[in-house]
Design a protein around this nucleic acid. Structure first.
Lengths: 223, 223
DNA sequence: CCAGTTTATGGACGATCATTCATTTTATGA
DNA sequence: TCATAAAATGAATGATCGTCCATAAACTGG
């Protein structure tokens, strides 16, 4: 990177990617700490310790920076989720358990991420580009969950396995969304364990052979 | 009210309540149409067709107006819900059915209300006064639902009726929250019927004697 | 008809907003 | 070593922000 810096001189980054990243981080920090509508260019560059002109050097305008920040946050969510999913076994109920517990884990659901998501969602309407990123649980995740439920409903010889799997998918995602909202509005009383138990209680009622209150039931040979 | 207005003269409202209400309506309209962060005093008074100074005549400052608007929206939600609840029978599953169907009805869940709620939630963090209003489904509704579920679980002679009723309450509210989010993010593909069916599918799995996919099961005499 | 009160108006204030751009600093490559 | 390119700077611009307030209009009670 050819970084040569004399000792008593302000170190210069001199890398466009670094500056872009600094601006995005500062934007998200600002949204978390002072809210979306208070997040100004001045606030962002101050936090990033960069000069005023930097935003318009690396982004067309403020909105482009906000979109980039939303995109970055969405990618971060999926990257953390993928990391946890990689460790899961391939059994459908194990996949579902991992998705649910991951989505409720500290790595994915915390003060910072919940504030970021709801901030973007609140403004998504006046900002078409942002809305696509403000959906935490979009198609790829939806498909993964549906496939897992479909395996379960098909194995059960149900009348309409596809329909039930679709409803279970939709319902599970809605439950997770609801838990995120609960965290946002009642972060003091929120409990990850309760949230998980409630979801598994609903799933164990729907699929008693595959779930209990703790999560997935380990597959028996004779089943 | 002593409203006397000559024909070719600008009619004066001359009622503080009317003006307050006009400002609140204009504020909510603006939030719905151009978003929270674009909603300025100028925008509000233009929409209300009032002069600039009016906001500070009836509210301490812009924030007080926003809080009043959030409060007004919250009251509107509960007033519409109460109206629908009044028609429900007293059977616990009938109450639950009414709450769920009402919460998903056009009167309560529509383009306007969903945008308002998520806009306020997105900014609630930097605005302590707003957060209390941004919780659509707060204590009174929670208590109503819990009481209904408790009646059901108690009648079933379950081991831990209170705990299951609490989880069912929490889960049902989370499902409803999730459905609202779904409406916000995918209003084009959202279906009230599907949303209701999914929730009832989960509830019928938990309480097969009390719910089916259409809603509450009418209480049998011999049950 | 005339104070006095309430309601309404809109110009003015300083602060801050997003954006532009001429200039400077740093790194690169020959 | 030096011209060139890349990266960074921050002053300046015009628009808009929330708020204030002197003034005017509309209504009231006497």
């Amino acid at each position: 990177m050819h970084k040569r810096q004399s000792e008593d001189q302000q170190p210069r980054r001199y890398s466009s990617e670094d500056s872009r990243r600094l601006l995005i981080d500062a934007t998200l920090d600002s949204i978390v700490e002072i809210g979306f509508s208070s997040t100004s260019i001045s606030e962002i560059v101050n936090r990033a310790q960069l000069s005023r002109g930097m935003v318009h050097l690396y982004f067309d305008n403020k909105n482009a920076l906000l979109v980039a920040a939303a995109n970055y946050a969405a990618k971060a969510y999926y990257s953390r989720l993928s990391k946890q999913l990689a460790a899961a076994s391939s059994a459908p109920q194990a996949i579902l358990e991992t998705v649910i517990l991951s989505d409720l884990s500290e790595a994915l659901l915390n003060e910072r991420t919940v504030k970021i998501w709801f901030a973007f969602r609140g403004e998504a309407r006046s900002n078409k580009a942002i809305i696509q990123f403000s959906d935490t649980r979009d198609k790829p995740l939806r498909d993964l969950i549906f496939k897992a439920f479909l395996e379960i409903t098909t194995a059960q010889n149900l009348l309409v396995p596809g329909k039930i799997a679709r409803d279970a998918t939709h319902g599970t995602l809605a439950l997770l969304e609801g838990m995120w909202t609960d965290y946002l509005l009642h972060s003091d009383s929120f409990s990850r364990a309760s949230a998980a138990r409630i979801i598994f209680r609903f799933l164990s009622a729907l699929f008693p052979q595959h779930f209990n209150l703790e999560g997935a039931i380990v597959q028996q040979d004779g089943l």
